[in-house]
Measured scan of single mutants.
Amino acid sequence: MEVRTIKVFTTVDNINLHTQVVDMSMTYGQQFGPTYLDGADVTKIKPHNSHEGKTFYVLPNDDTLRVEAFEYYHTTDPSFLGRYMSALNHTKKWKYPQVNGLTSIKWADNNCYLATALLTLQQIELKFNPPALQDAYYRARAGEAANFCALILAYCNKTVGELGDVRETMSYLFQHANLDSCKRVLNVVCKTCGQQQTTLKGVEAVMYMGTLSYEQFKKGVQIPCTCGKQATKYLVQQESPFVMMSAPPAQYELKHGTFTCASEYTGNYQCGHYKHITSKETLYCIDGALLTKSSEYKGPITDVFYKENSYTTTIK
């Protein structure tokens, strides 16, 4: 009895394709271990004539594949690729409408935090270190965002349907971005203890939790000093293409032309909904596939993004 075979390709990165001759009487799992086709788990399936010449994702289970996976995804987590594939199996079914010149995501599976993050990423200057993220990001900007969303979920250790947080998501993504040249110098002034300067680099240099107003941050924000008295913390120097200011959701007025974009969060910790506000020729609110415009805006804002380049204080 002759062994019926077909020729397929296996890959971990969709760049390096490895030619395989597979036995049609055995499952993919018996031949390769966990195997995925377009995100779908085909591990328990036997090869079919229609699979001839198709590319299958496999887990990096030998040295060659491990090197290829690390170079593309910059992670050695053995569960990463499987999590990416199972997320992709959902995100490829989502709709990605162009809204006001940006790629958004039609609401499904509690994905409003991903839509808000995706919209924000198209408006701030950011370059990702893992080629996987950078490639998928370019495709997302062009309207094909399924891979990018699935990668975000995998890097953030999230599953489809789980509630997510924009600030946490951005923080994970910033860790995989090139923020080497970003720098922030802060000064804390206390009447009792004097003053202390701190220099922050990388992710810490672009994120701040405690106030939404970048102007206020430049002037000074009140913080408790270690001595128990009130101290003032203010920005001395900022070198970065953008800054992200966050605070627990509270009524906040966004003035046209003073910011790049913002995240609105309605609801409580267990259950809520994100919308995205962007400042173009007027203010726009993007909620999944829905767009509304207004000249002014007041609502429960939790993150505001500002364009920056270089700032030095005039406070002496």
Rank of each mutant, 00 (worst) to 15 (best):
D13K: 05
N49C: 15
V236H: 07
F305T: 00
Q175P: 11
P97R: 09
T76S: 13
V58N: 07
Y73I: 01
H176F: 12
Y57H: 12
T313F: 14
I15Q: 10
V221I: 15
K219V: 10
T91Y: 00
T11R: 04
T10Q: 13
Q122G: 04
M207D: 03
F56M: 12
L291S: 15
A247W: 01
T103E: 03
K46F: 11
P97T: 13
L283K: 00
P47R: 03
T266S: 14
A146N: 03
T10E: 06
T35K: 06
D77S: 10
L173Q: 04
H48I: 15
A140R: 01
P131T: 05
V22F: 07
E204A: 14
L290V: 13
K298V: 14
T211K: 04
P78D: 14
V67M: 14
G220K: 03
Y155G: 01
Y36K: 02
L179Q: 02
P300N: 13
V99W: 11
V189K: 11
K201N: 09
D13F: 05
N111E: 04
V67C: 15
C285S: 10
Y311P: 08
C149R: 03
H48R: 13
A205P: 03
V189C: 13
D77K: 06
S213Y: 01
Q175V: 06
E281F: 02
S246V: 02
Y297P: 00
L59E: 14
T120M: 08
K293D: 09
F148K: 04
R141V: 11
C227L: 01
G161Y: 05
K92R: 15
W94T: 06
G288L: 00
E264I: 15
Q222H: 07
M24R: 09
K158F: 03
T211E: 15
A140L: 14
K95T: 15
Y155Q: 05
K92Y: 07
K92Q: 11
K92M: 11
V99K: 14
N100M: 09
Q251R: 07
E144M: 08
K92V: 10
T91V: 08
T27G: 08
Y274M: 06
P248R: 13
N157S: 08
S240N: 01
D303C: 03
T169M: 07
L37H: 14
K46E: 13
W94V: 01
A115I: 04
D303I: 03
L65Y: 08
Y274P: 00
T266V: 11
Y311F: 15
E281Y: 01
D62A: 08
T27R: 10
R184Q: 07
Y137K: 03
T198L: 12
V42M: 12
F70K: 08
A146V: 06
E144K: 12
Y155R: 01
G220P: 11
G272F: 01
Q195I: 11
D303W: 01
T199Q: 10
D165P: 02
A177N: 03
S295G: 13
